[in-house]
Design a protein around this nucleic acid. Structure first.
Ligand SMILES: [Mn+2]
Ligand SMILES: [Mn+2]
Ligand SMILES: [Zn+2]
Ligand SMILES: [Zn+2]
Lengths: 151, 151
DNA sequence: TTGTAATTGAAAATCATTTTCAATACAAGG
DNA sequence: CCTTGTATTGAAAATGATTTTCAATTACAA
């Protein structure tokens, strides 16, 4: 799905939820749809004002909260905190984060069922959720200095 | 290692790091060594004052920060935030958390190397760390109401 | 025992987030 | 295209968490 289509889908979903489609919301939605990094409120505020100069920080908080309620974005947990949001991936996916530039990709295919079963029987817990995240350096950030100008 | 031994080991480590062993620090260390739940600053403050009534919240923040620097405790990431601390486990362990009572256990034995390798070659990332956590209900919280009085 | 630097807790300052509120703008209906 | 009711907005104030400042206290090396 192209970013433009995704933006209108998000706006439609907002409207179906009884919300009005306004310029500030459009700016924030475009931002969150188009970004592959987890963004915090202040970042959204700063980036959003290039699109909609009057944007208020309060509106950023309110809109992020609403998008999270609708499941379109979600909080990302990072070593330095959990105050950044990213668009939600489809299906069961986990995150792979570049610790240098913040780029986020997703991956699937983890099979934790055997481990989950073993841990459950070892401990007596009923396990019903897991968090898995990988951290590393993305291809772009791995490039040596000498080749940076070529990209 | 018994809790008492662990407490003196932590205090020794504090001292080796150039810190003085004081009553407020001792109270906080005893708390963090003896608890199997992730505790936030206010919880540490409240629990700590039963041991050391004059304890100040500022001292709690400062001591938790120092214990984290020494690697004795670490921040736990939970759905509702990452402002709680837990003593660090030995070796490569992951957390299993009870979403009802907050009890935390650890487990080992995850083998994510194959998946890590696959994701690395699929994405071009150099992966150097992973986070894994399980959530569920602990044996005690799984007990039906009718048997609660028996425990 | 003494001297000194680290530590303490209260109070003030700072920073992030939430609430309040009057003005504005969306969108449903005429 | 207007009108109208209500959701939304952003500024300012309020709140809550964390950090900084500072004078008094305390640990501990000598
Ligand atoms: Mn999974
Ligand atoms: Mn592991
Ligand atoms: Zn990168
Ligand atoms: Zn429990």
């Amino acid at each position: 799905m192209t970013p433009t289509i995704t933006v209108s889908r998000w706006l439609d979903l907002l409207q179906s939820a009884g919300c009005r489609v306004t310029a500030p919301r459009r700016a924030i939605v475009e931002l969150m749809v188009g970004t592959s990094r987890a963004l915090g409120p202040i970042e959204v505020y700063d980036l959003g004002r290039t699109e909609h100069p009057g944007l208020g920080l309060v509106t950023v908080y309110r809109t992020l909260e609403k998008l999270e309620e609708l499941g379109l974005i979600e909080r990302v947990h990072l070593p330095d905190g959990c105050h950044r949001y990213l668009r939600t991936a489809d299906g069961h996916q986990h995150l792979l984060l570049c610790t240098t530039c913040g780029l986020v990709q997703t991956f699937a295919g983890d099979d934790l069922d055997p481990l989950t079963g073993k841990v459950a029987s070892d401990t007596g817990f009923a396990i019903n959720e897991h968090w898995l995240q990988f951290f590393g350096t993305c291809p772009n950030c791995r490039k040596p200095i000498s080749t940076l100008s070529e990209s």
